[in-house]
């Protein structure tokens, strides 16, 4: 038995230790790894009617992955331009949502983290309470706000800034706002947690040594908050790229999110292997992207958990 396990059992006792270990294993293996492995398995099989499953035609194939890149066999185009465009657009949009969220949330998290008092608690509560409302309801609420006769358009037209209502839905502004709003807490709280532990004297020391505010942030606060920033960004990026409800409700008619394609494969086309292949591609790409960015910004895996 490795020493860390021995220590774990010594500290928690055999019964409690086995129970905790069992639950963690059930969680990771039973609920995360096995289903994903079965998805992986699906993704390499052809879509067969139930009687033929396990039959001679049920062999491993790269067909589903080929389809994402080259489209249907004998199709008119060299590449599956439609799906690939959706794929990359989803990734780019998720990155944009993440950056937008970071810019929005960092000042809020900084303010919350470096100020004390009752108004901070009230502020935090006001951030949390909207999340008591179902995600889908929130998305519909945003759709109403951004709609042609919604609050924003009424204000814009009423005040004479626009002559005609602006189509926030078709221009994806509602979608980005919805995605940004959906994950705002996941960005604020990791950053807030780290910044709260930053000694205020560090900021004053930097100021005293002549640093203007932006250099204090660049040199003192942001390096300190990096673990929080990376864990916030990772969560927001992963969840935005994998979001379904917000794109479904707030997306324009012509702009699909890659998850919607996956959803279509599973549900509308009943093509589980194809859907699984798409899902795996999205998952692996997202993970690689996150790992690459972590490398670029010199973030350790251990920092993410902070």
């Amino acid at each position: 038995m490795p020493s860390f396990l021995k220590e774990f059992f010594n500290r928690n006792g055999t019964l409690m230790g086995s129970l905790m270990l069992g639950l963690v294993l059930f969680w990771t293996v039973g609920l995360i790894i096995l289903p994903q492995l079965s998805m992986l398995d699906f993704s390499f099989r052809p879509n067969l009617p139930p009687p033929e499953i396990g039959g001679p035609k049920d062999i491993y194939t790269l067909e589903n992955y080929k389809y994402l890149i080259f489209g249907p066999e004998g199709g008119s185009q060299d590449y599956n331009a439609v799906d690939l465009r959706v794929f990359f657009r989803t990734l780019v949009a998720a990155v944009c949502v993440t950056i937008f969220n970071l810019i929005l949330c960092y000042p809020i998290a900084y303010y919350l983290g470096q100020n004390k008092g009752n108004h901070i608690r009230v502020f935090a509560l006001m951030l949390i309470i909207p999340y008591w409302i179902n995600e889908i309801l929130r998305a519909f609420a945003l759709r109403i706000i951004f709609g042609e006769s919604g609050v924003i358009n009424t204000l814009l037209v009423g005040s004479g800034i626009f002559d005609t209502p602006f189509d926030f839905i078709r221009n994806d502004i509602a979608l980005y706002a919805g995605l940004g709003y959906a994950y705002i807490l996941l960005m604020i709280f990791p950053i807030y947690n780290v910044i709260e532990s930053l000694d205020h004297n560090q900021i004053e020391a930097a100021r005293d040594l002549g640093a203007p505010w932006w250099r204090i942030h660049k040199r003192v606060v942001i390096p300190y908050a990096k673990p929080g920033i990376s864990s916030g960004c990772t969560m927001v990026f992963m969840l935005s790229a994998g979001a379904l409800a917000a794109p479904q409700i707030l997306g324009g008619p012509s702009s699909l999110w890659f998850t919607q394609l996956i959803y279509q494969q599973f549900n509308d086309n009943s093509d589980w292997p194809q859907g699984a292949a798409y899902a795996i591609v999205l998952l692996v790409t997202c993970i690689l992207l996150v790992l690459a960015l972590m490398r670029v910004f010199k973030v350790n895996m251990g920092d993410i958990g902070k």
């Binding site: 004297n201 020391a205 005293d208 040594l209």
Partner: peptide, 21 residues
């Protein structure tokens, strides 16, 4: 005149060295 513009330097009670530098 702000603290970053004054000809003073302050040594804090807890020193406030930058831990990551």
């Amino acid at each position: 005149i702000g603290p970053n513009k004054r000809p003073t330097a302050l040594i804090f009670q807890n020193l406030a060295l930058f831990p990551l530098m």
